[in-house]
Design a protein around this nucleic acid. Structure first.
Lengths: 256, 256
DNA sequence: CGCATCCTTGAGGGCCATCAAAATGCGTGG
DNA sequence: CCACGCATTTTGATGGCCCTCAAGGATGCG
């Protein structure tokens, strides 16, 4: 079943775990998952869906658009991860209760809300689906770990290449990438928050990527002519994204 | 009930979630938890408990000693988090199946093994305990997020102060800290792997902490005379550790 | 066409990496 | 008790990445 068909059939949750273990979900579970979304809403750019320290009686499924998971220190925003459609972005707060971070919209966003009562029910009578919920939150942990390493390892231009490669791959998993790149509402300022660099330095880093022909970033779109080159420059090894059909061999370090 | 009594009664799992939501566990659940540990083992320094890419049919409870969660890139080890007794260190691999990182022993370590079959049973008939397992893995994600931010925000001396503050607090939660500091088998090289800095630079950073009287680190022990000063220097706000009884007010940024 | 936001460019300085080398501490075995 | 090997800790010099401060240009929207 193609991503498009799946999304047509399940317009609110059809991208959840798409390209990963979605195939483990039975038709009944997909139906149930879709029914979990009590209501949907369209949010404007910059809207903070949930703020650090808050508790919530529901969690948020990202249906369309981009989000950033952020922390703030000394009046500087740090983005610790980003999110694409299909991500159950703040499922964390179901188990954690109060949240330790913020979830911010980038561009216009469509979300669905899942009451925690309904998740409690799932944990009672569908341990298999519950385990997949758990899995989806641990994906965030795995991505955090990769970011920590790349932050320590890479210079700004390479780190941006890594971020581009990750976004591209994740959009691809949910059927939202093109063959020559992808669309994104992220600004250079957002990228700076993701890199832990200043917007000025990110600008120079992007200029270098453009000059060397690795990637071209303009407002709203990233274009790449040679994907392998991008991924090699950013030392990108997608194993931490837990995509379907990743052979064990590819899981080891790309550069042995 | 003191930490010592709890650990005497439950010698394998008495520190699990101690200082956090352990109080949410009923006596029956504590007994069940203790019984989950099928066998224990003592491991020597440097032993890799589980390696990136592996799957496992059990998870590991850290009973005594320290561990590091590591990734390797370009022959450089990066520690993305550390672990103290009571941590269910590789519970991640229950939901993730194959693991994206390594778990390494620092110093001599005592561990307990929990078969995944037993965890499946818990998910079937004790959703409350299952939710606490989930919670414990999300703690790691929260700590990763804080590390990302601190890595971007702090210089090496401050980052080391932050790491000392975190270790101290976490040891305290499981009853293993002293009033003037704590014992740890970590070396300057380990600290460098945790900071994303070279051992040489970490050495200079530690020298600065010593000179300014903020902290004294010698093989096996960290001594601090003024804890508030350490925490302020490292911009340490413990809310991300989800300790018990954290009032909502303390959850907001310390430096507003 | 004015304003806000985002992007671009330049100069100077600090943190940390790298290379090189030496001193200290600790366990082992003679 | 000393000699030895080994890991760890310490010190110095040079250079690169990225920060800060400052200002100008482009883009999009009402």
């Amino acid at each position: 079943m193609s991503s498009l068909e799946e999304f047509a059939r399940y317009p609110k949750t059809g991208r959840f775990l798409a390209g990963r273990v979605r195939s483990a979900l039975s038709a009944a579970e997909r139906e149930r998952m879709e029914a979990l979304v009590a209501e949907t809403e369209v949010l404007e750019h910059g809207r903070r869906v949930i703020a650090r320290g808050q508790t919530s009686d529901h969690s948020t499924m990202l249906i369309e658009g981009f989000m950033l998971r952020t922390l703030v220190a000394d009046n500087r925003r740090h983005a610790v991860s980003f999110h694409v459609p299909g991500d159950f972005v703040d499922l964390h707060c179901f188990a954690l209760q109060r949240l330790d971070h913020n979830i911010d919209c980038v561009g216009q966003v469509k979300v669905g809300y899942v009451p925690h009562d309904a998740i409690v029910q799932v944990m009672r009578d569908d341990p298999q689906l519950a385990r997949l919920f758990w899995f989806s939150t641990l994906l965030d942990a795995a991505m955090h770990r990769e970011w920590i390493m790349k932050l320590e390892q890479l210079t700004a231009p390479r780190r941006i290449a890594h971020i581009f490669a990750e976004i591209w791959q994740r959009l691809e998993m949910v059927g939202l990438a093109q063959s020559d790149g992808f669309d994104t509402p992220l600004t250079q300022i957002d990228l700076a928050d993701m890199c832990g660099a200043t917007a000025i330095h990110v600008n120079r880093a992007i200029a270098e990527l453009r000059k060397t022909g690795i990637a071209d970033f303009r407002r709203g779109r990233v274009v790449v002519s040679d994907r392998d080159r991008l991924e090699e420059f950013g030392d990108f090894n997608p194993s931490y994204l837990y995509a379907d059909e990743a052979p064990a061999a590819e899981f080891s370090q790309r550069r042995a």
